[in-house]
Design a protein around this nucleic acid. Structure first.
Length: 190
DNA sequence: CATGGGATTGACT
DNA sequence: GTCAATCCCATGC
């Protein structure tokens, strides 16, 4: 989508990204899990302010923020809200729809539900790495597009974010109810 | 300049 | 259930 889609409150964008499609170089998947992060709360990388690492987070909406996690993995975010506001949606899980065999080769696994069911897994499956940091999500190489018809109105559950130690009370995680490709089961409903 | 800690995953007890 | 891998960044001395 165009930058205007992302130029809104990050929690709103996180919810609406459920059902949208992420693609890169022939591999694609439907977003089934997302989380919102905002510079006003300490779980967000942008909480520390503008640094070299957070430059993209504070930049224009509609760009990819890709960072290294635990020294090993890459995680993909969509930057939201106007320039000067550090906010992004972490893409946590996809349901594979295209390029499944290439994803299997990259992951070294067979089962479709194991290919993209986690933030580090989906970047490996799609070939996303740190070089993609800052790329325009409308122009690529990583592209996010509107929902396919069958995903028009997925039932979405809200719950607490996963894997963080600060601001754990916020229910800023969103899941497509019933998907078998979530990183963890969805709990509460919204 | 040294150090600690991750928005995780997969292998192992 | 526990735990190591691995490295960049932010913090503190």
């Amino acid at each position: 989508m165009r930058p205007a889609f992302y130029d809104r409150p990050v929690v709103e964008v996180a919810r609406e990204l459920i059902g949208c499609v992420v693609s890169r170089d022939g591999c694609a998947g439907v977003i089934v899990e997302s989380e919102a992060y905002h510079h006003s709360e300490p779980a967000c990388h942008a909480f520390v302010g503008l640094t070299e690492r957070t430059r993209v987070l504070f930049g224009p909406p509609g760009r990819a923020y890709v960072y290294r996690s635990y020294g090993i993995h890459a995680c993909l975010n969509a930057v939201c809200e106007p320039p000067g506001v550090g906010a992004a949606v972490l893409i946590r899980a996809l349901e594979p729809v295209e390029g499944v065999d290439l994803m299997r080769a990259r992951r070294g696994l067979e089962r479709v539900q194991d290919l993209c069911s986690g933030p580090g897994k989906l970047t490996q499956a799609l070939g996303i790495w740190l070089e993609d940091n800052g790329c325009d999500l409308a122009a690529g190489p990583i592209v996010i597009e509107r929902k396919p018809r069958r995903w028009r109105a997925p039932q979405v559950a809200a719950s607490k974010r996963v894997g963080i130690t600060k601001a754990t009370e916020l229910e800023w995680r969103f899941c497509a109810v019933g998907s078998r490709c979530l990183s963890r089961p969805a709990f509460s409903r919204a």
